[in-house]
């Protein structure tokens, strides 16, 4: 589908541009401004140049060490939840009922965790994991497995990851389900005539058809897990110690807890830059994939 060139289309986009610019560019300028200055309080600021950035990127300083540690923690967290949620999501999507009222039921239950406010998600798991009043913690301890997410690092990680799998696997599953639904029956019939195995159907038909939605799923899940704040904050508060302090939690600690505006601003900019780069990579892959596949999909629908 060729688009016509029409620069007047800018008028249609203008309201969006102005509104988002108001909420994005103005605050970002404030951040840039802070990142170059230091203060001794009393709203007196003086020029600090790139001092904060140097400190941030030097792991031997306190700020640099904390940044690097929380960045690593966050990357590991994102890696773990992606490697759990993507296969599980595909599995659930493949297991969806074929028709009837059970489909609606499954869809509603699947979507339920996504609509719960993030701090309530945290609260649910904070309660659920407690050894005295929570079902999970109580059952595990009863079964002889010592489990306490407040004092044990590993248990805290286990809880936070389980919570994220509970919270977000549905998103991957719903995306994949949408991809699967778009496969015409003729494809399966052809595969049956060819005597294709179950596995061949999956790798040759279903997986390629889910390719685009899976990209969206991975993009959304990576981004959202990379900026996760509320849920682990409610459950563990970043603890025990610093073991579940992800970047956003560290950032809020520095900005609103210690009120070190310069450090927080420098951290924000580097954080934003990482996200921008990753986002750009995904976006490029996605638009390229779209350009290749669009004619095929148009024909299938």
């Amino acid at each position: 589908m060729d688009k016509t060139i029409n620069n007047k289309a800018w008028f249609l986009v203008l309201p969006v541009f102005l509104l988002v610019a108001f909420s994005a560019i103005l605050p970002l300028m404030t951040v840039v401004n802070y990142s170059m200055q230091d203060t001794f309080g009393n709203n007196q600021f003086f020029w600090n140049g790139v001092g904060w950035f140097k400190e941030l990127l030097d792991p031997s300083t306190d700020l640099g060490g904390r940044f690097l540690a929380s960045l690593w923690r966050n990357l590991i967290f994102s890696g773990v939840i992606l490697s759990l949620e993507v296969p599980l999501g595909i599995l659930v999507a493949l297991s969806m009922p074929r028709g009837g009222w059970t489909v609606a039921l499954c869809l509603v239950v699947l979507a339920l965790p996504l609509l719960i406010p993030w701090n309530v998600v945290g609260t649910i798991w904070q309660i659920f994991g407690r050894e005295d009043i929570g079902l999970l913690g109580y059952a595990l301890n009863r079964a002889g497995i010592s489990y306490n997410y407040v004092s044990n690092n590993l248990d805290a990680w286990f809880t936070v990851i389980l919570m994220d799998v509970w919270h977000w696997t549905s998103l991957v599953a719903l995306l994949c389900y949408a991809g699967l639904k778009s496969i015409p029956d003729a494809y399966y019939q052809a595969a049956q005539i060819d005597g294709a195995s179950r596995w061949a159907v999956f790798t040759a038909i279903q997986l390629p058809k889910m390719h685009r939605v899976l990209l969206i799923a991975v993009l959304l899940r990576f981004m959202d897990s990379f900026m996760i704040y509320t849920e682990p904050f409610v459950v563990t508060g970043g603890g025990p110690g610093n073991s579940t302090t992800f970047i956003s939690i560290e950032l809020v600690k520095i900005a609103l807890g210690q009120f070190d505006l310069g450090k927080a601003a420098a951290l924000s900019l580097v954080y934003n830059l990482i996200i921008l780069i990753v986002c750009w990579v995904f976006y490029t892959i996605m638009t390229n994939a779209g350009a290749e596949r669009r004619p095929v999909e148009g024909g299938a629908q």
């Binding site: 688009k3 029409n6 800018w10 969006v16 994005a24 951040v31 950032l251 924000s268 750009w280």
Partner: peptide
């Protein structure tokens, strides 16, 4: 429907805002 000056960049910029961490 249309191509216009900077459309792809604008779309990407919008998308990048969806990904910006609220903490920032």
């Amino acid at each position: 429907r249309y191509r216009f000056l900077g459309d792809k960049h604008l779309f990407f910029w919008l998308l990048s805002n969806r990904m910006a961490p609220a903490a920032v």
